[in-house]
């Protein structure tokens, strides 16, 4: 026998279900209830940084888009700093950027979009430079526990090649599943991504 450790156990996850919008994005469920709502727009006019749109789909094992999925993103600001007291890095805080947003996929097309800024690179505890990235969390009917992944940027080839997390991904061919592709539409920068839940191009998901 030994002394008991007496840690509590984490509460078990359960699926967000098909009606997740009611609680998290009520306007998508079809009604208006809160005075203030969270959204997929992370920027205000005074947010610093390059405006970008993140646009993509989450595909199931048949390649069909999930049309009832909800994504949240969490990212650093343009100078690579998270708006949270545990980030003690040298970057400058931007009071006009929380760094978090949520979006439901379109009920017809499955398209998910965020209006945000491109984050700066961050420095990890060991002092290594990490490529700019956006942290993504995915929930939906049929997803029993939220899925964590990341989006990196296609125009950051050198930084991506040196990124300590991307370099953990083996085989290396899977690293491309984490890269959003830069493009332009009507003068706006759009990064496109596809998250594959299954199949030969299954996206890399993290146990964080």
């Amino acid at each position: 026998m030994s002394q008991p450790l007496n840690y509590l156990r984490e509460t078990a996850s359960q699926t967000a279900g098909p009606y997740v919008h009611i609680g998290l994005i009520p306007a998508m469920a079809g009604f208006d209830i809160f005075e203030k709502n969270f959204s997929n727009v992370l920027v205000t006019p005074s947010t610093q940084g390059e405006r970008i749109t993140l646009e993509g789909k989450v595909l199931d094992g048949t390649g069909s888009p999930l049309r009832d999925v909800l994504l949240e993103i969490w990212q650093a600001n343009a100078s690579g700093r998270y708006n949270h007291p545990a980030d003690r890095s040298a970057g400058t805080l931007d009071g006009d950027f929380r760094g978090w947003g949520r979006a439901g996929s379109d009920f017809d097309s499955g398209l998910v979009t965020f209006d945000t800024i491109k984050p700066g690179g961050i420095v990890d505890k060991a002092g290594r430079k990490c490529a700019p990235h956006v942290n993504v969390w995915i929930v939906a009917r049929g997803i029993n526990i939220g899925l964590n992944t990341r989006l990196y940027f296609s125009d950051e080839e050198a930084a991506n090649a040196a990124d300590p997390v991307l370099n953990l991904v083996e085989p290396a061919v899977r690293r491309k599943t984490l890269i959003a592709t830069r493009g332009e539409r009507a003068g706006k920068v759009v990064y496109s991504f596809t998250i594959n839940l299954q199949g030969a191009d299954e996206t890399v998901f993290f146990d964080v």
Binding site: D60, G61, T62, L66, W74, A76, Y82, N83, H84, A86, D87, S89, R98, G99, W100, I122, D124, K125, C130, H133, N135, A140, R141, G142, I143, N144, L147, R150, V165, L168, V169, R174, L197, Q198, E202, T203, V204, F205, F206, D207, V208
Partner: peptide
């Protein structure tokens, strides 16, 4: 059809995980 089949890649907590909104 909505469950990943590959192993999750385990990451030690970095500043991206210990911070949040």
């Amino acid at each position: 059809l909505r469950s990943p089949r590959q192993s999750l890649l385990s990451l030690e907590s970095s500043v991206s995980e210990i911070t949040g909104p």
